[in-house]
Each structure stands twice: as C-alpha cells, then as structure tokens.
C-alpha cells in the first residue's frame, strides 16, 4: 500500500470529524419526512403566514400528552371556510400528527387535541381554505421527557 503523505492524512482526519459531527448536526434540524408531508398537502405552493393561532405550551414537561389548540380565522360559511388543517411535528420519528377536516357545519375552525412529542421541536400547522389558499404557523415546544419509545 502506498504511504499516505501529510496532506492526505489531514483530509482523512477531517472526514472522520465530519462523520462524527453529522448526526449531531442533524438532530437540531428537521429529522424526519416533514418536507414530504408539506409537499403532498400544499402541492408545492408556499403557504402564507397568518390567520392561524396555534396554542401550545412553551415547555412541555411530559412529551406524552402535549395539549394543542388551534383556531383559524374564517367566516366558516358555505362560500368561505377552512377545509383541512395539517399538523406536523418536525422532530418526531414520523412527521404526521393529525389532519383535521372542517366543514361549514363546524361553525368555527377550532379544535383541541393532545399530541406526543419525542423531543424539543417545532410544531407546524398548515391550513387549506375552501378557495385553495394556504396559511401556516409554527411553534417551538421544549420537551423535558420525550413521548415516543420509552
């Protein structure tokens, strides 16, 4: 085998550092298929900010049950109402949390559920209106005890 010179040795060493650092870097980023869910729901369109108020605790002590309330501004009439709302958690093993479907009979585009969060992460909501427009909102929740596995 050819002896490696100093330069190559450095390059190799650098490679190892990169390898060991990469999984750590990935932890802070989106770790699941959230982008795929968003793509499927929005059809590639970029949702606008606003209209949604997403209520989640800033710090969740127990990731097994995190209360989530969502309220979307809408007249909820037959002509103009909120159709679907997708909720995603970008640090869970699976991004999907729930997809809520409203109708004009809902009266209000408002719902509460309890969700599981594996770790500190962003919870994202995307709402699709009856006219096809999209709105989004996200919140970061700090999780002390994770709610998946265990």
């Amino acid at each position: 085998m050819k002896a490696i010179n100093r330069r190559q040795a450095f390059a190799l060493g650098g490679g190892f550092v990169m390898l060991t650092l990469m999984p750590m870097a990935a932890d802070a980023e989106v770790t699941n298929d959230a982008a795929k869910w968003i793509e499927k729901f929005t059809g590639g369109k970029t949702p606008a900010k606003g209209k949604i108020s997403l209520d989640l605790p800033e710090i969740a002590e127990n990731g097994n049950t995190v209360p989530l309330s969502i309220n979307i501004e809408s007249p909820m009439t037959a002509d103009s109402y909120v159709k679907d709302v997708m909720i995603l958690a970008d640090g869970n093993p699976n991004a999907g949390v729930a997809t809520l479907s409203f109708t004009p009979l809902s009266g209000k585009a408002e719902a509460s559920i309890r969700i599981r969060l594996a770790t500190t992460q962003n919870v994202v909501a995307i709402a699709k209106m009856s006219d096809g427009s999209l709105f989004t909102e996200q919140k970061t929740v700090k999780v002390t005890i994770g709610g998946c596995g265990g």
Partner: peptide
C-alpha cells in the same frame, strides 16, 4: 356527523396521545 352531514373529521397519526381527546365545534 350531524343528521347525516359531515361536521368534522380528522386523520390521526401515532403522534396522538393515548386516550385521544378531541374537542371541536359544531353549528
């Protein structure tokens, strides 16, 4: 459903807590 007409529905994923609690409104 209310009198056969859909009011509210949701698709749930494993990220929903045990004993699912769902609160919503209806006209």
């Amino acid at each position: 459903e209310f009198n056969g007409k859909p009011v509210f529905s949701c698709a749930l994923e494993p990220a929903i807590s045990a004993n699912p609690y769902i609160q919503f409104d209806a006209k």
